[in-house]
Write a protein that binds this DNA or RNA. Structure first.
Length: 369
DNA sequence: CATTCGTGGCG
DNA sequence: TCGCCAAGAAT
């Protein structure tokens, strides 16, 4: 295990010199670290930073989170995606309040009981916040370790996953045996430093595309580097090709207000607000007639706004947007509310519908090619 | 165990 | 324009 020791000490030394100064690395309480970890699930650091600041300013303690109204949570999460993360965070805050005396637990078993906390996040909280000798494997660590040891399998498969957690555990054990460790204001304790170093290396040096092996502190131990095969790892299976969908979105105005609906329980993104939308067939190309019939208004009253594209995992969605002024609520729209601009600003919309709102309220000049 | 859940950036 | 992917978890 001399090699694991060398890797661990190399990572620690590198981290204290090259760590990014991320805001949650100054958090001294586990709550701030926990919030950052949940926000960072499948989400990049640069995206998370402003959200984390706003969240911690408005909900500085677990008690604040446990008592916050759902619309505040969703507004704070607006645009981050995976909105169930916000609701799970609050459920977990209530569990912490009710059964852990308001203190974020420090053991893996207790952490795994919390909604929204899985193997990775449990390891992250235990090691980063409490410096417990617990391993973690996220996408970054999987990339670093598959390259380090030339692990051929897909990191998403259970067998490969087990191998990676085992290697991460070896590194934690080696870290525990180091005689001396460097210190940094950005992490407290050797296990916290090691795990953050693994992730930091994956995020900034051992990147998916165009890795900077010349700047890697552990390249002498890296089997893939020695074989000139770094970019062959990790061997991820190709994703399912996205299915294309088209929707018409209607921005209806009536005496200075806009019509929006709230997604209901059981829906994807429930609790979020949106302009009414209608699924379109891919043909015909021009959906004006279909939309006009849906709303029972004349086609000429529909005015196009810039189309908006977005994706929900395996769906690639194009939104064809139309604006119209009406004097009554079209029957087909069902429940919804007529709202002012100011009211809409205070609601949580998906990113696509927030863009539509901005386009409708402050129309951009469309440059024709 | 396979699928689902968002979004923005980048080559 | 398009595919890929980023500090994963729940069902």
């Amino acid at each position: 295990m001399a090699e694991a020791t060398e890797v661990a000490s190399g990572l620690l030394a590198w981290f204290v010199l090259h760590a990014r100064d991320l805001p949650w690395r100054h958090s001294r309480d586990a709550y701030g670290i926990w919030v950052s970890e949940v926000m960072l699930q499948q989400t990049q650091v640069q995206t998370v930073i402003p959200y984390w600041h706003r969240w911690m300013r408005q909900l500085p303690t677990i008690g604040d989170l446990a008592n916050a109204p759902e619309e505040q949570l969703l507004k704070l999460w607006e645009g981050l995606g995976y909105y169930s993360r916000a609701r799970n965070l609050q459920k977990a805050a209530r569990v912490v309040t009710d059964t852990h005396g308001g203190n974020v637990p420090s053991t893996i078993a207790d952490l795994l009981e919390l909604p929204g906390v899985g193997p990775y996040t449990a390891g992250a909280i235990a090691s980063l916040a409490y410096n417990q000798p617990e391993p973690l494997v996220d996408g970054n660590v999987a990339r670093v370790l598959t390259r380090l040891r030339m692990i051929e399998g897909d990191p998403r498969e259970p067998e490969t996953k087990a191998t990676l957690w085992s290697i991460a555990t070896q590194l934690i054990k080696a870290t525990g045996k180091l005689h001396s460790v460097p210190s940094t204001p950005l992490a407290r304790g050797r296990f916290s430093i090691l795990n953050q170093a693994l992730m930091e290396l994956g995020a900034t040096v051992c990147t998916s595309r165009a890795p900077s092996c010349d700047q890697c502190p552990i390249r002498k131990s890296c089997q893939a580097f020695a074989s000139g095969a770094v970019e062959r790892f990790p061997a991820l299976a190709p994703r399912v090709k996205a299915t294309r969908l088209r929707y018409a979105v209607v921005v209806l105005r009536r005496s200075g207000k806009w019509f929006l609906r709230q997604r209901g329980a059981g829906d994807v993104n429930h609790g979020l607000w949106e302009f009414p939308q209608l699924e379109l067939r891919l043909r015909p190309a021009n959906p004006v007639r279909q939309v006009a019939e849906w709303l029972d208004i004349t086609p000429k009253s529909l005015h196009p706004l810039p189309r908006v594209r977005h994706a929900i995992t395996r769906y690639q969605i194009t939104l064809e947007v139309f604006q119209a002024s009406v004097d009554k609520t079209p029957v087909a729209l069902g429940d919804g509310q007529w709202l002012t601009t100011r009211e809409i600003e205070a609601l949580a919309l998906t990113s696509a519908h927030r863009k539509i709102a901005l386009n409708a309220i402050e129309p951009v000049n469309i440059q024709t090619d």
